[in-house]
Design a protein around this nucleic acid. Structure first.
Lengths: 337, 337
DNA sequence: TTTATTTACGAAAACGATGTAGTGCCATTT
DNA sequence: AAATGGCACTACATCGTTTTCGTAAATAAA
């Protein structure tokens, strides 16, 4: 079944290309009889409209891009899943790009997308991203961007986040109320908005209980897995280890588990652990991991909804808007109760 | 920065559109001096070639689709990651589609893709897929399809799998050598090629040790999570439970873990568990899960490599080819040693 | 000098679909 | 009988590129 164009259909039927086009779109200009003939022939010859011809004329592609720092991450996957579901429902197509937490790559990808391949972008920033020119350039070339989770305040647009400060505060509060007095905070990077807020929540909780903040308890685990591993191992094997860990992201908690397993540190007796995580197997870990679970799927859905709704209507920029969803603290065995 | 076309560039420079086009592609037809001027102006005006115009002319889009049954699944995510990496390296774009294990949806998606939106497809079948007309139609309309993992023998093309039979045999053998005499096999569906092969490997191992096959130990867990849960719970709470579980896919093993937790069944003392899985947290589970781990990332990479290599060259169909990678049995605490 | 050849560029036809601006033709109105 | 209007359809420009075919001018060969 070779590809067949409108023209071929038209020739076959002895009518003009415009007639076929209009008949297929059920235009009032075409008689019922003709419409029927066209529809039948189109079906018979397996006609499929070439999407790119339409994109060219209409300057829009019904395609959006999702840009994430990593794929192998439960949070991002669930978010992408939410985006995909929403987009598919509305007949949009989803391209994925991965920055691998690399600012340069993020730049390259956004620069590339300026060509109009997509109508809009949904993204979460790389840890290493510190300037936002590449993003504002994209927005200025009329391609709207919606952020989720790792957002960028500097760009005016819709941003989907969770109540990071409150969740962090509650999580830390939970640790303190269950006996922790020396909690280490494992962070990815503090130029990341969410990480900053999470740290603030943590600090606020310490402050509430008049627990002094020790700078060396705030550990920046940027960079590769191994260096994170080393830092955490060093922390836990020191002569004066903390009695609680607040991990800003899932991987850091998992590394903590690994280190504890190796060093024989008992969770939660010697060390309580809590973290932001969307790990489905959290209840099955040894011990079950207390998590702050973000509504990732819902976040992706919201991001897509906002973006697509906007694309359907206006050509203006997306107005600034902060959509904040609630995370859930799920207490399990890695903290005392 | 509004979008700027070749024509505008040409007008700006006082040359023709063709000259600009050729200069940008560094054609030998254009003088060095002119080339430089064009390049500079293009840069200055932020020119980005409209990809869709090119697609229209060349009947190819440098875009491929990945179609998977589910996104929230470590195996598929790692595979997609492999595809994405390979595609990105070669300047291809990746669209994702999710069938949600639904044959009808799979049909709809493939039918849609017949319009030439993508140059090729990489896919893994839905459990409910029993006929393959939608796939051969796609192939016949000149869009090559490469399968991975859940392949389809009926279509002649490249297929990336793992040594499912051997892995299953080895996994079951492992269980038997460590004391199991009554092993239940949890399968998704037996019209799925991989599931069938895995079951054969299991049966072969039983046969090797002259262990009789009991039909009621082969449990088909298709359908929703809840019905799987019920079946597994029923199995394990019967008066005569098995002493080993071979789960064909990850989720079934995790459900088994959940049920065991609820019923207080001790793993591995009362029940040994093994499964096909790409769970990064397998070592951290309680107890650590013995897995047969597939090289998912590598499979995605291979699938993309085969497809893209093909797209760069021929217009003919992809020849039949079975690429079989090795899985790895990783023995952990859910089986005795 | 005349004739080939090369160099550097331009005009125009695609690619496939859409939508505007007609164009005949028949029926109704005045 | 002329004017008006509606119906059902067609012609054609358009979207932004690429590419083939020409061609004028400059250079080289005769």
């Amino acid at each position: 079944m070779a590809k067949v164009s409108l023209k071929e259909l038209a020739d076959m039927l002895g009518v003009s290309v415009s007639t076929v086009s209009k008949a297929l779109r059920d235009s009032y200009e075409i008689g019922e009889e003709t419409k029927k003939r066209v529809l039948e022939m189109a079906d018979e010859m397996g006609y499929r409209a070439n999407p790119y011809a339409g994109h060219l004329r209409h300057h829009q592609s019904r395609t959006i891009a999702v840009i994430v720092p990593k794929l192998t991450n439960n949070f991002f996957i669930q978010a992408i899943s939410g985006v995909e579901t929403t987009a598919f429902d509305r007949n949009y197509h989803v391209l994925i790009y991965v920055t691998h937490e690399d600012f340069r790559l993020e730049e390259r990808i956004l620069k590339h997308l300026q060509n109009g391949r997509v109508d809009g972008v949904i993204m979460s920033l790389a840890v290493t991203t510190k300037s936002y020119d590449h993003i504002s350039e994209l927005v200025q070339s009329n391609i709207p961007v919606v952020f989720f989770d790792r957002i960028c305040h500097e760009i005016e647009t819709a941003k989907i986040t969770t109540d990071d400060f409150a969740s962090s505060f509650n999580g830390t509060d939970h640790l303190i109320r269950h006996g922790c007095r020396d909690i280490a905070f494992l962070s990815l990077s503090d130029n990341l908005s969410i990480d900053y807020k999470r740290k603030q929540g943590y600090l606020e909780a310490l402050h509430k209980y008049d627990i002094p903040v020790k700078e060396d308890r705030i550990i920046k685990c940027h960079g590769d897995e191994k260096s994170c591993y080393r830092k955490i191992r060093q922390l836990l094997s020191s002569s004066n280890p903390p009695d609680g860990i607040f991990a800003s992201v899932e991987t850091l908690a998992l590394t903590t588990y690994t280190v504890c397993q190796e060093l024989g540190v008992k969770i939660p007796d010697e060390l309580q652990v809590i973290c932001f995580s969307n790990l489905p197997t959290a209840p099955l870990l040894n011990p079950p991991l207390t998590t702050i679970s973000q509504p990732a799927f819902e976040m992706g859905k919201q991001a897509a909804t906002v973006l697509l709704k906007h694309l359907e209507k206006r050509r203006t920029a997306i107005p600034n808007e902060n959509i904040v969803l609630k995370s859930e603290l799920v207490v399990r065995g890695s903290t005392k109760s």
